[in-house]
Amino acid sequence: MMETGFDVVLALMLLGVGGWSIIARNMMTAVIIFIAYGLLLSLAWVRLHAVDVSLTEAAIGSGATGLLMVIAAHKVAGDSQRVVRLSRGFHVLAAVFATLVAIGIASLAFVLPGAPVSLAAPVLERLPESGLGNPVAGVLFVYRSFDTLLEKVVLLLALIGVWALARDQDWGGVPGLRLFQHPHSVLMLLARTLPPIGFVFAIYMTWAGADVPGGAFQGGTVLAAMWILVMVAGVRRVPRVSSPLLRLAIVAGPLVFLAIGFLGFVAPGVFLAYPDGLAKPLIVVMEVALTLSIAVILGLLIAGPPRAKDSA
C-alpha cells in the first residue's frame, strides 16, 4: 500500500515535471527541469528493479546530456542574433507531430501481439558459462555484443559530429571548454580532492559491473566527470584534438572490441564469440578499454569543438 502510494506520486511527478519542461518559456529553465526529470526517471527505474538502467539514466540521461544542454542553452542565449523566432503555426505543427508520435508509441505498447516471449529464464540458466553474475552485463557482452559494439561506435560518431562544427582554421586546436581558472578558488580544492575518490569509485563500478549493477558506461561517466572537473578548474590543460594519445584513447574501446570480435573467427569460428573458458577475461579486457574510451569521448563531447582562440 505504502509502496503503491510512492509509485503513484512518482508517476504523477514525472508527468508533471515532464509537462513543465515542455511549457517552460525560458530555455535554461526548461533544461534545468529536464535534469530534474532525468533524476526522477532514474528513481522510477530503481522502482522497476532495473538498477543498471537507473545508473545510466542518472549519469548519461540526466548528468551528461543535461550538461550538454546547459552549454547549448547558454551559447544560444549569449548569441541573440542567431536565435530563430518560430511562428505560432510552426509550434502548433511541432506539437501535433510530437503528439502523434507519442500516441503511436503508446498504442503500439497496447496492441502487442499476445504475451511477449520471455527469454529471461534461458538467459539466467546459461549465464554462469560466461563467468558473469550480472544478467545485464551478460546480455550486453554475450547475447547482444554486436549491438553493444555498434553503441560504442555511435558514441564515436557523435564526437565526430561535434568536431565537425569546428571552423577549418581551428581544426586540431584545443576544445572551447569554458574554464573557471582561479588559483585560490574553492573549485580548485574540489578538483584536487575529489578525483582520487572518483577514480577509485569509477574503477570499482566498472569492475563490479560483472556481478552487480554497474559497468563500463557508468564507470566511464564518473571518470569523464572527474576529467571535466580537473580541466574546468585548470588543474590540467584541455588537450588538443590532434593529440595522438588522445585519439588512441578514443578508439581504444571500439578497437579492442573489434579485435576480440575477429578473434572469435579463429577460436569458436563465429564473429564476437568467445573461446571456451576465456569469456570472462576477454570481457574484462573489453570493459577496461571501453571505460577509457567512453570517459574520454564524453569528456570531449562536453568540451566541445576545437576553437582557435585558446590554442596558442
Binding site: 573557471f180 582561479h182 578558488s185 574553492v186 573549485l187 580544492l189 574540489l190 580532492t193 575529489l194
Partner: peptide, 21 residues
C-alpha cells in the same frame, strides 16, 4: 558536504560579482 560547500561558494561568489566566471 564537499560538493555542496564548493557549489554554494561558487554560486554565491558569482552573485556578488567576485570573478570566478
Amino acid at each position: 558536504q564537499l560538493s555542496g560547500a564548493v557549489v554554494t561558494q561558487i554560486l554565491a561568489r558569482s552573485v556578488r560579482g567576485e570573478g570566478e566566471s
